[in-house]
Computed example of a mutant assay.
Amino acid sequence: MTPFAPARTTSLLEVSGVSVTFDGFRAINNLSFAIGPQELRAVIGPNGAGKTTFMDIVTGKTRPDEGTVTFGEVPRSLLRMSEAQIARAGVGRKFQRPTVFEDQSVSENLMLALKAARTPWRVLFWRETAKDRARVAELAAQVGLADHLPRKAGELSHGQKQWLEIAMLLAQEPRLLLVDEPAAGMSFLEREQTTALLVELAKTRAVVVVEHDMEFIRRLNCKVTVLHEGSVLAEGSLDHVTKNPQVIEVYLGR
Score class of each variant (00 low, 15 high):
Glu39Arg: 02
Glu39Gln: 11
Ala42Glu: 05
Ala42Ile: 03
Ala42Gln: 05
Val43Leu: 11
Ile44Phe: 02
Ile44Pro: 05
Ile44Asn: 04
Pro46Asn: 08
Pro46Val: 13
Gly48Arg: 03
Ala49Phe: 05
Ala49Ile: 07
Lys51Ile: 07
Thr52Asn: 00
Thr53His: 00
Thr53Tyr: 00
Thr53Asn: 08
Phe54Asn: 05
Met55Lys: 02
Asp56Glu: 15
Asp56Tyr: 04
Ile57Gln: 03
Val58Ile: 15
Thr59Val: 13
Thr59Ser: 15
Thr59Ile: 04
Thr59Trp: 01
Gly60Tyr: 01
Thr62Leu: 12
Arg63Asp: 00
Arg63Gly: 08
Pro64Ser: 12
Gly67Gln: 04
Thr68Cys: 12
Thr68Met: 11
Val69Ala: 06
Val69Gly: 05
Thr70Asp: 12
Thr70Arg: 12
Gly72Asp: 06
Val74His: 05
Ser77Thr: 15
Ser77Glu: 12
Leu79Asp: 02
Ser82Arg: 03
Glu83Leu: 08
Ala84Gly: 09
Ala84Trp: 09
Gln85Thr: 14
Gln85Pro: 03
Ile86Tyr: 02
Ala87His: 01
Ala87Thr: 14
Ala87Ile: 06
Arg88Val: 11
Arg88Phe: 08
Arg88Asp: 13
Ala89Val: 06
Gly90Cys: 08
Gly90Met: 02
Gly90Ser: 10
Gly90Pro: 03
Val91Cys: 03
Val91Gly: 00
Gly92Thr: 07
Arg93Glu: 09
Arg93Thr: 11
Arg93Asn: 08
Arg93Ser: 07
Phe95Tyr: 14
Phe95His: 10
Gln96Met: 06
Arg97Cys: 11
Arg97Gly: 11
Pro98Gln: 00
Thr99Ala: 13
Val100Tyr: 00
Glu102His: 10
Glu102Asn: 11
Glu102Lys: 12
Asp103Lys: 10
Ser105Gly: 09
Ser105Met: 01
Val106Lys: 01
Ser107Met: 12
Asn109Pro: 06
Asn109Ser: 10
Met111Ala: 13
Leu112Ala: 14
Leu114Gly: 09
Lys115Tyr: 10
Ala116Ile: 12
Ala117Glu: 15
Arg118Gln: 09
Pro120Lys: 01
Pro120Gly: 07
Pro120Leu: 06
Arg122Phe: 15
Arg122Cys: 12
Arg122Trp: 15
Val123Lys: 04
Val123Cys: 11
Val123Met: 14
Leu124His: 07
Leu124Trp: 15
Phe125Leu: 14
Trp126Met: 09
Arg127Cys: 07
Arg127Met: 08
Glu128Asp: 15
Ala130Ser: 12
Asp132Gly: 07
Asp132Gln: 02
Arg133Ala: 14
Ala134Thr: 09
Ala134Ser: 13
Val136Gln: 01
Leu139Cys: 07
Gln142Ile: 09
Gln142His: 11
Val143Pro: 07
Leu145Pro: 04
Leu145Val: 12
Ala146Lys: 07
Asp147Pro: 04
His148Phe: 13
Leu149Pro: 02
Pro150Ser: 09
Lys152Ala: 14
Lys152Thr: 12
Gly154Phe: 05
Gly154Asn: 03
Glu155Ser: 15
Glu155Tyr: 08
Leu156Ile: 13
Ser157Thr: 15
Gln160Asp: 11
Gln162Phe: 05
Gln162Lys: 15
Glu165Asn: 06
Ala167Asn: 00
Ala167Ser: 07
Met168Asn: 01
Met168Cys: 14
Leu169Asp: 02
Leu169Gly: 07
Leu170Lys: 00
Leu170Asn: 05
Leu176Lys: 01
Leu176Phe: 03
Leu178Met: 05
Asp180Thr: 08
Glu181Thr: 10
Ala183Cys: 06
Ala184Tyr: 00
Ala184Glu: 05
